[in-house]
């Protein structure tokens, strides 16, 4: 538990960090960034809240079970998204240029960037982002709980 100034700015910054992280994940096929980077940004938000409020309070708000489940669900959906193109090959991007969801074609060369393109890549970005936010967040929570257990003794 840190001082009131730190807790107040953590309250203000936490939703902004979450929005920024999900923006990086969702625009991974248009701008610099992607699943790994956005997930790391969201895990930074978890670390900020955990350090500002102390582990004893935070473990009621952010359950480690949920983060572990997010990690497993992310990896599983990544593998399933890779398996959906098994008709041609593993990791086949069958949604690109198909007209379905995320299936618009892009003009060749520099363009302003259209969100509804790139086929399977945004789905994989989202899956990997969920996996990384769960993984790094649960690493932070595990280390804080070990530090807390060391403190008591």
């Amino acid at each position: 538990m840190m001082s009131k100034i730190v807790r107040t700015q953590a309250n203000i910054l936490y939703p902004l960090i979450l929005i920024f992280g999900f923006y990086i994940v969702a625009h991974g096929h248009l701008t610099p960034g992607g699943g790994f980077q956005g997930g790391a940004v969201i895990a930074t938000g978890v670390a900020l809240v955990a350090i500002s409020f102390g582990y004893g309070k935070i473990k009621k708000w952010i359950k480690k079970t949920n983060l572990t489940a997010a990690e497993a669900v992310g990896l599983l959906s990544f593998i399933i998204a890779a398996f959906t193109g098994i008709g041609t090959s593993f990791f086949c991007n069958w949604l690109a240029n198909s007209g379905l969801i995320f299936g618009d074609t892009v003009p060749y060369g520099p363009n302003p960037g259209y969100l509804n393109t790139a086929g399977l890549l945004p789905i994989m970005n989202l899956a990997v982002g969920i996996e990384v936010l769960g993984g790094l967040g649960v690493v932070v929570m595990y280390m804080l709980s070990a530090a807390k257990a060391s403190e008591v003794k």
């Binding site: 096929h29 992607g34 990791f91 991007n93 690109a96 960037g113 393109t117 790139a118 890549l121």
Partner: peptide
């Protein structure tokens, strides 16, 4: 081929997908 503007993402998730797995 992948309809993505970001070539690095198209390499990471499409051409070299096994690396990412």
């Amino acid at each position: 081929q992948t309809a993505a503007n970001n070539i690095v993402t198209s390499i990471v998730f499409d051409y070299r997908g096994f690396d990412t797995l």
